[in-house]
Design a protein around this nucleic acid. Sequence first.
DNA 1: AGCCTTTAGCTAATCGCATTAGCCATCATC
DNA 2: GATGATGGCTAATGCGATTAGCTAAAGGCT
Lengths: 186, 186
Amino acid sequence: MPKARLTPASVTAAAAALVDEVGFDNLSMALLAERLGIKTPSLYKHVASQADLAHRIAILALTEVGDAIRDAIQGRSGSDALAAGAQAMRTYVREHPGRYAAGNAARPTGPDDPFIPASERVLASWAAMLSGYGLDPGQEIHAMRTLRSVLHGFATLEAAGGFQIDASVDESFTWLISFIDQGLRA
Amino acid sequence: MPKARLTPASVTAAAAALVDEVGFDNLSMALLAERLGIKTPSLYKHVASQADLAHRIAILALTEVGDAIRDAIQGRSGSDALAAGAQAMRTYVREHPGRYAAGNAARPTGPDDPFIPASERVLASWAAMLSGYGLDPGQEIHAMRTLRSVLHGFATLEAAGGFQIDASVDESFTWLISFIDQGLRA
DNA sequence: AGCCTTTAGCTAATCGCATTAGCCATCATC
DNA sequence: GATGATGGCTAATGCGATTAGCTAAAGGCT
């Protein structure tokens, strides 16, 4: 194999960094190529298309959030695990809004799409965390969906600049977490 | 004024309908023109650009959701108001996913952008609903943000097909509502 | 060392879509 | 019936994604 300065993975990483800067909607092959110091068509030697690139960013993002959440939950349980996991996710989205947006826009392309296990890993972490609350088995799925909804909703609203009023967003988030925590106990 | 078959408003309405069908990301001037039976450039006699069109759809969407929520809350209070308002919002998003996406993508363009009052009307309805719970004034903003987060999160996840498991999504939503309701009482 | 295959990157060309420029027909009003 | 504003059209521009085909260098092999 000849020189291997760029690989699909390195191109994806550069694209992910770019997308965090300029926003997922503003991703363009031209801009990415410029960043990498190559001409636009050369990108196609590493990724199949812009859609393929976006999909790779999505998988990267899900893998990273999954890792972040799992690491945060490690060794904790109950309220502590919830707080740590939720904060980890919010931090990730704040630092990598473009990647996260890519993750949300993506949809599995087939049954063997690595996107699927990547997203399942995220769900598995949340499930593990929730199990610490000893919920009624029939309610777990609803609790899971509610949890995903709040966290996803908060993160996207914050990333979109949806919280205008000058009240501390950090404070709102810890309030939200304890609100969920208390609800899960009852 | 010559014949007025099309107006900015009617074009926006057609675009909103289109976007609910094909998805906000797939909106194109060409497709809209085809639907209206005119050529693409003619659209520019009614809207300034595709961005302008998207912005108009966003305002329309916010106005409609605002109305829906306000009407649902009318005459109710407490748990009833919460349930009715939340259901109204979810129903709206399910029936008009494209419009709702447009509303989320939009950002005010200036201090006198009609987008601002339209979104404030939505917030005002939620605030009115929350006031029925008699919360501590210092907590209201956090409760508001939490409420927005869950509802927005649930709606977008559902619209994106994020709830895969074959457990009733309707049931999860009512569970979510009563979860929030109970939390707001404590 | 020298050959050969592989392939990253390049230039040139195509295509679709948003947008602009300029022309024409029509309709409302006087 | 003249006239002026305006909706719609065709032609043209430009940009971004994508494809085709060429070139040269790098790694393996003898």
